[in-house]
Design a protein around this nucleic acid. Sequence first.
DNA 1: GATGAATGAGTCTTCATTCAT
DNA 2: GATGAATGAAGACTCATTCAT
Lengths: 190, 190, 190, 190
Amino acid sequence: MARPKSDDKRNAILSAATQIFAERGLAAPTSAISNLAGIAEGTLFTYFSNKDELLNELYREIKLDLADAMMSGFPRKKSVRTKLRHIWDRYTTWGVTHPDQRKVLSQLQLSGSLTLESKKAGSAPFSEIEAMSKEAVEQRILRDIPLEFLAATMDASAQTTMSFMAAHSTSAEKFQRLGFETFWKGISKK
Amino acid sequence: MARPKSDDKRNAILSAATQIFAERGLAAPTSAISNLAGIAEGTLFTYFSNKDELLNELYREIKLDLADAMMSGFPRKKSVRTKLRHIWDRYTTWGVTHPDQRKVLSQLQLSGSLTLESKKAGSAPFSEIEAMSKEAVEQRILRDIPLEFLAATMDASAQTTMSFMAAHSTSAEKFQRLGFETFWKGISKK
Amino acid sequence: MARPKSDDKRNAILSAATQIFAERGLAAPTSAISNLAGIAEGTLFTYFSNKDELLNELYREIKLDLADAMMSGFPRKKSVRTKLRHIWDRYTTWGVTHPDQRKVLSQLQLSGSLTLESKKAGSAPFSEIEAMSKEAVEQRILRDIPLEFLAATMDASAQTTMSFMAAHSTSAEKFQRLGFETFWKGISKK
Amino acid sequence: MARPKSDDKRNAILSAATQIFAERGLAAPTSAISNLAGIAEGTLFTYFSNKDELLNELYREIKLDLADAMMSGFPRKKSVRTKLRHIWDRYTTWGVTHPDQRKVLSQLQLSGSLTLESKKAGSAPFSEIEAMSKEAVEQRILRDIPLEFLAATMDASAQTTMSFMAAHSTSAEKFQRLGFETFWKGISKK
DNA sequence: GATGAATGAGTCTTCATTCAT
DNA sequence: GATGAATGAAGACTCATTCAT
């Protein structure tokens, strides 16, 4: 290829999109994104064939980033509680340190623009968590709660926790602990 | 008066808006709403001076409807658990039986179009719940959790529950119970 | 007639129209007029079948009012200069004391909404001035200038004078005199 | 650059705007302009960010064109009368040969859409005339008339003259001379 | 006659996407 | 590949006029 599509440029677009969408919602014009990314309006469309594709790619990218943050240093050998606590802390910390991504992620999930394929791709990197949870339930450490419901509950509780951590940054750790404790009491057997 | 502004028409607009917004998001054109409501495009603006006002009015209306559903038959004399269970059941049942309202409500809350005034007006009818919860915490029946955090957690858990109730209608009641049990274990003292 | 169209109401509309058009231009909505006049939007159209007719009627009314102001106390027996001076003073004074009418009148004249009939009706009350001027020219008191050109020149000079009188109210009289002197020197024979 | 904004297109818009506004007033739709200019409706807005800006730019353009017409060949060394006559002739001739521009110019001046900046920019090219007039008054060649009043009177007289020149094209030159003579007699010392 | 809600064509402006350069 | 001007279909909102009450 004479001049290959540049990864830098692609990333610049994705990063600009994150910021713009966080500030102005998914309805923000693509021109605002190309503008912030420092490229021409048309160039965006050589990297993403249309706005919807940009949305979907952005979703995957954020999910990947999040999975990375959550899984690194995962205490594979420790107790279920310790493992969940690890995930909980990584997740909520990521949310607080990546407010734009978090905001955009939830907008994306509600948008109706995500393809089934994207959703699958987005959840793939989290399969290990799932496997772990499944095991835990089977080991009777957790109450008999359908796995999916468990995951959804955890997500919801963590989101709430993140909001409070962000809003009360001096008590962030306190809320992080409180949130987890509440969640754990809710799902653990004893 | 020549032809008084009809409540029927106002309600038709509000109802059409709920349906359209649920299906196509808040960015849906007002023409789709007036169309579904069976009125001229311009007529919508004699009832709501602009789209934002429609959004705000719709928010209040839904909140009022929800408060109604939640508070009727409130067991003022029973235990905290019973009271919370009442609220939980009413809330989740409302969510499942009013899926459009539920969807629109969360879109509205994230939209950034709600005025401070609307938010206040929207939460006013729920003050009794708040009072009750406060009391419960003070009575040491619940763990020492900041009231706002408690409320947010309840809402998040209930939302999750609603999603599962809606997705598995045959096991709706099971999820309703399971959701509450998880929530209650999480927050209660013992 | 059971309830005759009220002259009061008609005048209220005309007066409101003058004010609104002066402030916001001829493109101002009729609703602003009916509003200021204290009547219903539809009522305006029982007095004037459409906006254009209102415009034309307003034109006539203002012209009539102006003619009245100019011709009362006309010194029929005095010299041409005195007569012209009378007209000049009455005209410019009217312009300064009726700024809304003056403004609307010029907007109307440029609007392209005036019918030929209205224009004729509007100039009818001024025929006496015309006659007088004609005579003056024939008497060789004024230079040989086509009557219409004379009239137009006078109007233009008077308009300019009014603007300065209005803008410098303390020197109003000075400008009134200066304007006339300039005009008179321009047209008189010696 | 991909396709540079074309001056031709910009001029086509300005020219179409002149024609449309002259025919239908400043309230004429921008679509009529883009239509006449042979471009898409949206394209107009890549050249002028909104209708008001188009109005302001059009004003400057016309003023510039007029200044050009008036000042070229200005007889700097001749008498005050000759200089004024030069301006008079150029101005009135321009008005008669550019009827659309003339019409639009006066509409623009009354419109209330002109920014202070535009007004300044529009009068800048005429500063030489002003300087000259000032000198003439100081030299006692003209009567003691405030400069601004003098300028306004000249403009008003010239406008009247143009109207007659346009309406009686065969006697155009006669009116041009007559108009100037009247004006000159009005303002000159002797 | 008076009222004002209802109408819907018309207006300016935005924006995803295309394509000439 | 990169650029950004060109496109034209929407979209929110306005307003003269009508007509049911």
